[in-house]
Design a protein around this nucleic acid. Structure first.
Lengths: 195, 195
DNA sequence: CGGTATAGTGACCATGCGCCCACTATAAAT
DNA sequence: ATTTATAGTGGGCGCATGGTCACTATACCG
């Protein structure tokens, strides 16, 4: 093994490793050793780039928070095709099937990480609120197209949808829900309200 | 310290200790040592009554799951007084200010505990779904009294409300929301839909 | 070419975890 | 009164965690 030569950006390698672990094994498996092993580097590397493991996690969350899910965002930007409920179900499945939920669970459990992130975001980690903003904008676009009931308020409905999806996925006490399950849930829940 | 003499039921003492720890310090602080220390007993006691710590946690969750929150349940049973949104806000605050959220977080993180509970509840830990049932029944009663819009479906609205509350409380990335905050959120979210 | 800075290595450490088990103290049975 | 069963004790074990540090290998610079 060569040393001293950067094999791609180590920082990015570690972040990608964390992604894979979160999706494959869940938040409880995200230890410092798991990350460095998955990235194929020695333990020391992590501490050369970050002060400590929570520092790494904080940087990881910051990095992942904004580019939440390209697929879902793109899908929602193309408002007007498909049914509203179907689009929502697909987008929510994509977003909550990504690392988003795991990141929230992580922040819920690691007290030190949470404290550190609060310095950056006093109002709370924006992962879920940013999803809500995404959904809100989508619903506003749909209303512009007249595909929503006039009384349906995107501002209020968005957090409810995110909350429901978070409930479905974040629980994680059963098998992860399929896209079809989410679609049916979203259908049943908001069908009467939106159309 | 006398030994061999039961000082109240040790089982209940341990459960109460777990309650206190969850509410005071959060789910990450709920270790076996913390429980026995808080209960004022030696470490061995826990293993005399339960096979292992996850067995204790499973029994604890099972015990707490059904009698979720008397105050909120009683409040919701007395449908017809106050505003609908106000009643909901109060009940959700009471429920999510209790151990419910911490229990969910616990189950999310402890893989072994989650696996064990799945044997008992294949559909998932019923904490959140039971709250939804509670809310659903309340909304049904309110509709009976004509205090709900005819189109508002309790079956669909209940999980959305629970999800929203879970989102507000379960995040735990900021200060815990006050009852006033939840009231205003519930007001803003469902005000237009329900009345 | 030697010097220096930097990325990477992995044995090692302290800590806290769940858990074991030899032991003690009380209560109940004979 | 002796035995047996049961509740409670706490020192210590094995393990995984996050973190340190002396060391090595490479790249860059004069």
């Amino acid at each position: 093994m060569p040393t001293g030569v950067p094999m791609g950006d180590a920082r990015e390698r570690l972040f990608d490793a964390a992604d894979r672990i979160l999706l494959r094994d869940g938040p409880s498996a995200l230890t410092s050793r798991a990350v460095t092993d998955e990235a194929g580097v020695a333990k020391g590397v992590l501490h050369k780039h970050f002060a400590d493991f929570d520092g790494f996690l904080a940087a990881f969350v910051l990095d992942r928070a904004d580019r939440l899910d390209e697929r879902a965002a793109a899908l929602l930007r193309a408002a007007g095709s498909g049914t509203v409920a179907g689009n929502l179900a697909e987008a929510l499945t994509a977003v909550f099937g990504s690392v988003a939920v795991a990141v929230v669970a992580l922040v819920t459990f690691r007290d030190e990480l949470r404290a550190r992130l609060r310095e950056t975001w006093p109002a709370g980690v924006p992962v879920l609120t940013e999803i809500a903003v995404m959904i809100r904008d989508y619903l506003a676009a749909e209303r512009e197209l007249g595909r929503l009931a006039p009384g349906a308020d995107p501002e209020g409905l968005a957090p409810m949808l995110v909350g429901t999806a978070h409930l479905l996925f974040g629980d994680r006490t059963g098998a992860p829900p399929t896209e079809a399950a989410v679609r049916s849930a979203v259908d049943g829940v908001i069908g009467a309200v939106l159309v």
